[in-house]
Amino acid sequence: RHRTTFSPVQLEQLESAFGRNQYPDIWARESLARDTGLSEARIQVWFQNRRAKQRK
């Protein structure tokens, strides 16, 4: 699998969602996937990585 590159618009949507809830449930992730055009799995990994980045 190649590395996913996120567009500025996608990142804005993801960061906005992260600001509201750092642990989105499956319904929120699937909604974000539809809105961004990404797969739910990529959304899930993005949130995992974003939480790890915040802990540093």
Score class of each variant (00 low, 15 high):
22 Q>K: 05
41 A>W: 10
8 P>V: 11
30 E>N: 11
26 I>P: 07
2 H>E: 15
56 K>N: 14
44 Q>S: 14
39 S>H: 09
25 D>I: 00
9 V>Y: 07
22 Q>I: 03
49 N>Y: 05
49 N>M: 07
43 I>L: 03
23 Y>H: 14
30 E>F: 08
18 F>D: 01
13 Q>L: 09
5 T>E: 10
19 G>D: 06
25 D>E: 03
25 D>N: 09
24 P>G: 11
40 E>R: 06
36 T>V: 11
18 F>Q: 03
11 L>N: 06
40 E>G: 08
53 K>A: 12
38 L>E: 03
10 Q>K: 03
51 R>H: 04
2 H>C: 07
45 V>Y: 03
42 R>N: 12
19 G>T: 10
8 P>K: 13
13 Q>N: 10
30 E>S: 14
9 V>F: 12
15 E>R: 05
22 Q>P: 08
3 R>L: 14
47 F>Y: 07
51 R>V: 07
46 W>I: 03
24 P>H: 03
56 K>Y: 06
3 R>M: 08
5 T>W: 06
5 T>R: 04
27 W>G: 14
27 W>S: 15
52 A>G: 12
13 Q>Y: 14
18 F>R: 00
11 L>Y: 11
36 T>G: 00
46 W>Y: 03
56 K>C: 06
14 L>S: 00
20 R>C: 13
7 S>F: 12
24 P>N: 05
11 L>E: 11
5 T>K: 07
12 E>V: 10
1 R>W: 03
52 A>T: 12
29 R>K: 05
49 N>H: 10
49 N>F: 05
41 A>P: 15
50 R>M: 06
13 Q>K: 07
31 S>V: 12
53 K>V: 11
10 Q>H: 05
14 L>N: 00
8 P>H: 11
44 Q>R: 14
3 R>H: 15
49 N>P: 00
23 Y>V: 07
43 I>A: 00
8 P>S: 13
10 Q>T: 06
44 Q>L: 14
53 K>M: 08
45 V>C: 11
42 R>D: 15
25 D>P: 15
42 R>T: 15
51 R>Y: 01
3 R>Y: 04
37 G>C: 05
29 R>L: 09
41 A>D: 15
47 F>E: 00
10 Q>V: 13
11 L>I: 11
5 T>L: 05
53 K>E: 15
16 S>F: 08
41 A>S: 14
15 E>V: 05
12 E>S: 09
12 E>K: 10
36 T>N: 01
26 I>S: 11
27 W>R: 15
7 S>K: 10
3 R>S: 15
8 P>E: 10
47 F>R: 01
41 A>T: 09
45 V>M: 13
32 L>I: 12
39 S>G: 07
19 G>F: 09
24 P>Y: 05
46 W>R: 01
29 R>S: 03
13 Q>G: 04
24 P>C: 05
19 G>S: 14
13 Q>F: 07
33 A>G: 06
47 F>T: 01
21 N>E: 06
39 S>Y: 02
51 R>P: 00
26 I>Q: 14
49 N>I: 04
29 R>F: 04
34 R>L: 12
36 T>F: 09
49 N>V: 08
19 G>R: 14
38 L>R: 02
8 P>L: 07
10 Q>M: 06
7 S>Y: 15
16 S>E: 13
25 D>M: 03
31 S>F: 07
37 G>P: 02
22 Q>L: 03
32 L>T: 00
43 I>S: 01
8 P>R: 13
4 T>I: 12
29 R>Y: 02
51 R>I: 06
37 G>Q: 13
42 R>G: 12
52 A>E: 12
21 N>V: 06
51 R>K: 00
5 T>N: 07
51 R>Q: 05
2 H>P: 06
20 R>Q: 11
18 F>Y: 13
52 A>Y: 10
39 S>M: 02
23 Y>Q: 06
9 V>C: 14
55 R>N: 07
6 F>C: 06
46 W>F: 03
45 V>N: 11
2 H>V: 12
25 D>T: 09
32 L>A: 01
54 Q>V: 07
48 Q>K: 15
25 D>V: 03
13 Q>M: 13
7 S>C: 03
20 R>M: 09
21 N>C: 07
38 L>N: 02
53 K>I: 12
33 A>R: 05
32 L>H: 00
14 L>F: 02
29 R>A: 05
10 Q>L: 04
35 D>S: 13
35 D>N: 08
14 L>V: 01
32 L>S: 01
18 F>N: 00
38 L>Y: 01
11 L>T: 09
43 I>W: 01
24 P>L: 08
32 L>D: 01
7 S>W: 02
9 V>T: 12
30 E>W: 12
20 R>P: 05
28 A>D: 04
53 K>D: 15
12 E>R: 11
